[in-house]
Nucleic acid binder design. Structure first.
Lengths: 219, 219
DNA sequence: ACCGGAACCAACCACTTGGTAGGTTTTTCC
DNA sequence: GGAAAAACCTACCAAGTGGTTGGTTCCGGT
């Protein structure tokens, strides 16, 4: 069938494959309806086993959640901030990192499921008792710090005197991206997330403005 | 039932009072844990009756949700866009409306419950099958239109050539407010929503900046 | 004071939830 | 090929879920 030609040519064991299938299913279902509204039986059925079988691979529902989240985070973070995931890896320049960040937004538009997952869960996880509460708190902290550094660099590069504190801008950018996702999920055709984010970044002088053309609403 | 006349000093009937108590309780509990995680029994107990008693006042759980949402919306909208709620009422000038909008953000900081309610529900309701899906879609539409008009007026007032399309700015502002709420709910002490919003508006020239070129918002 | 309807409750329904117990089948490795 | 281990299932559990039924209690208008 497929050739995993990277470093591990050995076929993953049955258990590993099932585990992956479970995580895929859980991701898809959590994405559609959030954490509370999805049962282990739903996930198991979607993955092609019983919920008891599922619980052989994960100690409980929460564990599935956490695994789904961190697996996805690992992938995304790697593409924008390689330094986080693999310490030592040199991070690309600010401009490049910004490009990747915007690229991530654009790419998200192809996977409403994942976007929905984070939108729903980050809201649910606001409750201190939620299993993913700590996870999201930490996630935002790391993300914010990383974006703050990025903004600092961009402000310095832009030359113009920084109008706002880097941390504030970082908060704004992250908030903007989150909020846009909700709008986009409600009306996928009506919103072009990438464009709105670009416009915001242009206003900050982080992206080349379009001079005399005015605000380009392409449609 | 009987026609709710505007100036009615009459004491609300027992039923009306209970209904209100139920909505208060539902608001509080939904705020704390979202829709799916709260049961009718929870709400009823909090309101001091049984869940069967509750169902005498509402046809089902969804109905409670919708009522909670629209009741709250009515209050908030009234304070910022009186024209929406009571057609015919002249709306205040753009500057004043903006002031009220920011004021609403600040006021929200006093009620994490309500904020959490909307954060969780607007995410949950992203699912087309969710009972509040249509409600939120409509809510965003109205809100966006109203804010778009506001932004148009502010851009005109600011004098400077508008850099972005009003609708885009409206989307950004709404997204920013939503996203900030999530951040704030996760770390209430670390975020001052009002300040971050103000900073954003300052960048647009809608609020007096720190030195250069304020808009004509006299306060 | 009365009576009709509103308000409310106990009991129940069919169903779902996360999780467990114990046995059976498949892989995996030697 | 054979045995240990991993994978998986059936059956079950106690605790909930939203909602219904049928009755009782209490309020409000006359």
């Amino acid at each position: 069938m497929s050739e995993p030609s990277v470093n591990a040519p050995r076929r993953p064991s049955k258990g590993e494959r099932t585990r992956a299938r479970i995580l895929d299913s859980a991701t898809e279902l959590f994405s559609r309806s959030g954490f509370n509204a999805v049962s282990l039986r739903d996930i198991a059925a979607h993955a092609g086993l019983t919920h008891a079988g599922l619980l052989h691979h994960f100690p409980g529902k929460e564990a599935v959640l956490i695994e789904v989240l961190s697996r996805r985070d690992r992938i995304d973070a790697q593409s924008v901030f390689p330094g986080i995931v693999r310490p030592g890896t040199p991070e690309p320049g600010p401009g490049e990192r910004l490009r990747r960040l915007v690229g991530l937004v654009a790419r998200n538009s192809g996977t409403p499921g994942i976007v929905g997952l984070y939108a729903k869960l980050s809201a649910e996880a606001t409750d201190p008792g939620h299993p993913a509460h700590h996870y999201f708190k930490e996630r935002y902290r790391v993300l914010r710090e990383e974006v703050t550094v990025l903004v600092e660099a961009l402000q310095a590069e832009a030359g113009a005197p920084a109008r706002s504190a880097p941390e504030t801008v970082a908060r704004q950018l992250l908030a903007l991206m989150d909020g846009l996702q909700t709008q986009w999920l409600l009306e996928p055709e009506a919103v072009v997330m990438e464009e709105v984010v670009r416009d915001f970044l242009r206003g900050l002088g982080f992206l080349p403005g379009d001079g005399a053309g005015g605000a380009g609403v392409s449609g």
